[in-house]
Computed example of a mutant assay.
Amino acid sequence: MTQTSKAAVLTAKETIEIMEFPIPETGDNDALLHVEACGVCGFDSEAYLYGGNGVFNLPCVIGHEIVGRIKNIGSVASKRWGVKEGDRVVVEEYIPCGSCNNCLTGNYRQCFDLRYGAMKIDNEKTALWGGFAEYMYLHPNAIVHKASSDVSPELLQLYIPISNGLHWVQEVGNTKVGDTVVIQGPGPMGLGAVIGAKEAGAGTIIVTGMSKDEHRLKLAKEFGADHTFYADTQDLVKEIAAVTNGKMADTVINAATAPQQIVTSLDLAGLRATIIHSGTDENLSNNLMSSKITWKLLTIKGVLGRPTRAVGVALRVIESRKYPLEKMVTHSFSVEEAAEAVRTHAYGLDQCIHVAVVNENIKMEG
């Protein structure tokens, strides 16, 4: 086996360099992953555009929507994760401590000592924690899920937007059969929410975007959306009132990044509706009308990723081939081209939807 691994290192604002690092030794309690594919996420693009963020401190190997095959694994780790050498797995981005109150109550995403699958390079092992690399070190506390060998890694790396969508719509939003769901933002998370709503048996699924999102809104309809509207050219409240007979939405998913979306969601929500907010923008609009929250008896919930149980469900959805997910992965790049992959995603170039970094010229399966 090769003794080094190529990796894409974010070293400064809008600067990614290809470096080689020694492949770390593993013991009984950890493992080494041969990365097959890794999606580009909004957190990656944010770190790229601003030279780091609250999650990634430079320099680090970014990428955390990870699919690969177990190369080496210790006996303890093999028993804990239920996988062996050669198995294909997906790896969640979280590396929790496992012993704090949040971890012990299943809320590991809020772990007091949370680390991510992309960490500042301090030593040989932390150099290969991110997914934009040929190989990745699997920490003993990594969260690993066995995945199918019959589905392309390019499709499997969609497990994060799809598991998020399932969780946000069904568990957090409490969407019931026949409900109306409005999804603001047709990006990967919004499209994942369309699948979540469809799987929940929603009666009406509505997706909103901008005029530039026409190709994404078209895909939303292929995934099961009943109506799509343009926030920059149409009156969303009027249009959604018309197709819901004035009842508006039972669940609103804010999957866009604009601060205005939470204000708009108060108008799109019907009586006793639930609003799910995934945005990280700290500058919320001053036009937030608390009276609408009160008189409509609205519930507003923030979301941060998904619980581990949602990942297994997402993998089954991907493996079912029920949705044309290959149309969601619009761009694939090699590890050496990771800078172009992140730049394409960060600036929304070439009508990209979801961008993947792929090893070994993996071909998309139909």
Rank of each mutant, 00 (worst) to 15 (best):
T2F: 01
L10S: 07
E14I: 11
I16K: 03
E20K: 11
F21M: 10
L32M: 11
G42K: 06
A47S: 15
Y48R: 06
Y50V: 00
E65S: 07
V67W: 05
G74N: 06
P96C: 11
S99Q: 10
N102Y: 15
Y116M: 11
A118L: 02
M119F: 02
K120W: 05
K120T: 14
N123W: 03
T126N: 12
A127M: 12
A133R: 03
E134D: 11
H139N: 15
P140T: 02
H145S: 12
G165Q: 10
N174Q: 14
Q184C: 04
V194R: 10
E199T: 14
G201S: 02
T204K: 15
E214L: 08
A220W: 14
A220Q: 13
A225L: 06
F229Q: 05
G246P: 07
D250W: 02
N254M: 06
P259A: 08
P259I: 12
Q260S: 15
I262E: 07
T264W: 10
G270P: 09
T274V: 08
S278M: 14
N283Y: 11
N287G: 13
S290A: 09
K292Y: 00
T294R: 08
V311S: 13
R316F: 01
R321D: 12
P324F: 02
P324Y: 06
E326T: 03
T330G: 01
E337I: 00
T344V: 06
A356S: 14
M364I: 06
